[in-house]
Amino acid sequence: MKWAALVVLALAPLAGMGNYPLHLLIMCLLWGFVYTSWAIMGRLGMVSLGHGAFLGIGAYVVVLLWNHAGISPWLGTPIALVLTAVVAFVIGYPCFRFKIVGHYFALVTLALTEVARLVIVALRDQTGGSLGATPNTALADSAWSLGALQFSSKLIWFYIILVAWLAGLWIWGRVDRSMTRLALEAISQEEDAAASVGMNVTRLKLGVTLLSALMTCFGGVLYAQYQLYVNPETVSGIGISLQIVFGAIVGGMFVRLGPTVGAAITLLLAEVLRLAIGHDVHGLDTTIYGLMLVLFIIFMPKGILGAILEALEKRRAAKTAAATA
């Protein structure tokens, strides 16, 4: 069933999908990947409002190295990942060491994402400031350039991003399996209890954070190369950081496919509203989206998919109870 769905998904674009639906599908998977990356740490109670910083590093480092030094994204990406790891470590280690949690962790990471945005804007001579930047094209006389990681075909991008997304889900599962139940609980709440049985909570948290940050950074690379345009507001700062958090929450950050469902719902909602209302009414789609978010967090904190799975679980439990009774 799972595999059949995957095959359908993988083959769908070959069945003559239009450019626009294909673009939407790619965006769903790309943001699904980024939201999943965030949720890998978010579900453990480490609510980062700073993932815009990692996304921004991924997007900008690769584009800037390509444009200013002619360094291929194949080399630029590892550089961006190393830089992300350093930043995540520098922020994460003291936070976990000194037990900065909850509001405080959220606000420290919020400061981080603002630093990233401001640095991008301040380096306007190199980055183009708030106008954004476009990677120098390598597609002048061919449809694709592997070295520059630029492809004019959306189909190629679909498969690249599909693989990334699947890898993200696989990592989620690996994290789940490699950590004992106790470790997971230790991270999210019973920190002192875990420390007393000799668990190195700081190291566990740091590991998860690094993983999450690196994946998000990679998402930033893919975003920049696919869109061939980066802008400080769309890849860093408080706006995108909150968008990542909310996408994951709407879908359900405690279940594996939740963040992806969140990405799909938010993207489709925006598109449907745009088609229904047209471009004339600025802000209506985000108004409804904002209202939904508020209602979600109040009434359905487990998200759409989380709530559905829970309801199914309950029904199944009720059925078994009825059967045994």
């Binding site: 109670g45 609510v47 909850g102 509001h103 959220a106 909150l242 958090v245 909310f246 929450i249 009414v281 600025h282 802000g283 209506l284 789609d285 985000t286 108004t287 989206y289 904002g290 209202l291 978010l293 508020v294 979600f296 967090i297 109040i298 904190p301």
Partner: peptide, 25 residues
Amino acid sequence: PINQLLVTGGVLFFLQAVATLAFGI
């Protein structure tokens, strides 16, 4: 506590969007 923080984040989006809707950009 974190839900309290996030819910006001949702309000942030909402108010921004309402302002866009009502007052334009």
